[in-house]
Design a protein around this nucleic acid. Sequence first.
DNA 1: ACCCAGGGTCATA
DNA 2: TATGACCATGGG
Length: 228
Amino acid sequence: MKGQIPRGRARVQARLEEVYTTLLAHHGPQRWWPGETPFEVMVGAILTQNTAWTNVERAIAALKEADCLAPLALVERPPAELALLIRPAGYFNVKAARLQSFCRWLLDQGGIPALAALPTAALRPALLAVKGVGPETADDILLYALDRPVFVIDAYTRRLFSRLEAVTGEEDYEDLRAHFEAHLPPDAAIYGEYHALIVRQCKEHCTKRGPDCAACPLAPSCGLPRLG
DNA sequence: ACCCAGGGTCATA
DNA sequence: TATGACCATGGG
């Protein structure tokens, strides 16, 4: 056992909570998701797919300006017009179709209040069945719009924890999600803060261009040699 | 000019 | 199951 990385359940739990505590202390509460209503959060989750949030903000502002930030208004707007409105968010033709397929599903379900009555175990597969809603988008919606204790996995999560040598980063999405959820208390408020902190941390330190470890709060416990 | 960004779908082997 | 092409804008 000498030299082995401890992989016991208690050790993993302690490690994940240590990282959370450290990030929270260093960056402060992030108060995600940016958005005034649950529906706006859902729209943002689709628009931010592989896209910088600043571009999403413009698209959402344009939707508001056009009185188009509502399920019915979105499905009734001609796809070409909708694409024009959300143009700054990129992939506008694809995302226009995705917003509309999602809103059709939402209306068919009976709106957000009806979703609130469904258990996560039923809701998640239903979301994943919507064209344009993949695992991360579904989990963004479940966590940040519907307050469900679902841990969101994204490229930042893989990058940070692989750098901490807690995961390889190549794991299947569901395997990673299960891993985090199995070692953290099922608390939506904590999951929401954690994911936001991971994003903040990666933007400031674990960048893709090159890690900036100079003032990284995790540097002392990071598995890799300090860079920068 | 190139790389990156809070992914997902579809075709192909 | 696992790659690759494709979608497209805006900032560094």
